[in-house]
């Protein structure tokens, strides 16, 4: 259960995408937030509201224009920070899995361990097998991503992140590209991770999951945080018109 030590502190960040020949898009407007150790933060909002940009900023995949992001005491916006080092501690699971297509399920998990963390092959192998069992596809270790269903690929991606023993896990609409029948299993797995005390930031359109697993829900629209609170507060008693409108459309 959440303690009061923040793992992630986001302070007043802004991000504008400028593409030549198109009007600039303000994807993040003065966003401030934090995630405590063991907390599960669920971010909801309409498409294009900046949820992915927020999550990618936390992992340093999207450089921000202003503000600061501190992860476990390390300032991500400090130019002296080694981003690759920091990313080891921040796991990310993508909508489209982003598995290494030339590696088997098991190798997808062992390769980053040996390359990045310099773990011994045998140790990485053991951890890989344990995690594949953990996410429920121990029998698919030697299959290539192209031989796995979407749900199975997403489980491999989750295991790949877990293998790095991250301090916080980021999930960006990880069930949106899955067949309906495999969505439930992946959500179930994420709920288990949540109850085990994993610190998580989850962007999702699965309101049932948000209600059950979230400690706190943040609603974003047009690059800004509109409302936040416990799942009960946000879902049952929303304060803002935009939140009400969004919830009425999605449920």
């Amino acid at each position: 259960m959440p303690s009061e030590t923040p793992i992630v502190v986001v302070n007043d960040i802004c991000k504008t995408f400028r593409i030549r020949g198109r009007p600039p898009v303000q994807a993040l407007r003065h966003v401030t937030n934090h995630v405590d150790k063991g907390e599960v933060l669920v971010v909801i909002g309409p498409s294009g509201s900046g949820k992915s940009t927020f999550l990618r900023a936390l992992n340093g995949l999207e450089p921000i224009d202003s503000g600061s992001i501190v992860i476990d005491g390390v300032d991500l916006t400090d130019p002296k920070t080694d981003l690759n080092r920091l990313r080891r501690g921040v796991g990310m699971v993508f909508q489209h899995f982003n598995l290494f297509e030339h590696k088997t399920a098991l190798e997808n998990i062992t390769m980053p361990q040996t390359v990045v963390l310099k773990r011994k092959g045998s140790e990485a192998y053991e951890i890989g097998h344990r995690l594949l069992d953990r996410v429920g596809i121990g029998d698919k270790a030697d299959n290539y991503p192209s031989e796995l269903s979407g749900g199975q690929q997403q489980r491999v991606a989750i295991a790949r992140s877990l293998a790095m023993t991250p301090k916080v896990m980021l999930f960006d609409e990880v069930t949106s590209a899955l067949d309906p029948e495999t969505v439930g299993g992946v959500l179930e797995l994420m709920k288990e991770l949540a109850t085990e005390g994993t610190t998580m930031v989850v962007v999702t359109h699965e309101m049932g999951f948000a209600r059950e697993a979230a400690d706190r829900v943040t609603f974003m629209d047009d690059g800004a945080i509109i409302e936040e609170g416990t799942p009960e507060a946000v879902f049952d008693n929303p304060q803002h018109e935009r939140t009400k409108l969004f919830l009425s459309q999605i449920i």
Partner: peptide, 11 residues
């Protein structure tokens, strides 16, 4: 995506 996957594990 694969490059971001590699980035996300800190390569």
């Amino acid at each position: 995506g694969q490059i971001e996957g590699a980035q996300s594990v800190g390569m």
